[in-house]
């Protein structure tokens, strides 16, 4: 499957990235080359093979549901670029 500049524009939009014309062209060529290489995986027979998402066998890590506070709100909020009255501030969303 050939990666087109339209694919790059579509996916960049999904990922909330802006790209100029030059980057779109460059990425289309580079990513097409990378994904062509990835497609060598099609020569491997994976019929009935269970996919692995995690290399170590672990079941769910349960713990008691006990309320605790590791960090105070102000210290966590202190990293935010804009904040007000204990809240994160974002640009206006609803018109």
């Amino acid at each position: 499957m050939k990666i087109t500049r339209e694919d790059i524009i579509h996916v960049a939009n999904l990922a909330r990235l802006e790209m100029d014309e030059e980057s779109i062209e460059k990425f289309a060529v580079q990513i097409d080359e990378i994904l062509k290489y990835v497609e060598t995986l099609n020569s491997v027979d994976t019929e009935g093979i269970v996919p692995t998402s995690h290399a170590i066998f672990l079941t769910n890590a349960f713990r008691e549901d006990i309320e605790k506070q590791d960090y105070d709100k102000d210290s966590l909020l202190s990293s935010a670029p804009e904040r007000e009255n204990g809240n994160y501030v974002v640009p206006k969303i609803v018109g």
């Binding site: 909330r16 990293s79 670029p81 804009e82 206006k92």
Partner: peptide, 18 residues
């Protein structure tokens, strides 16, 4: 939103993200 750089020039949420 939560940490790091923000382009504060942008007036809509989506433009700010991008």
């Amino acid at each position: 939103v939560k940490y790091g750089f923000r382009d504060k020039e942008k007036k809509s949420l989506m433009d700010m993200y991008r």
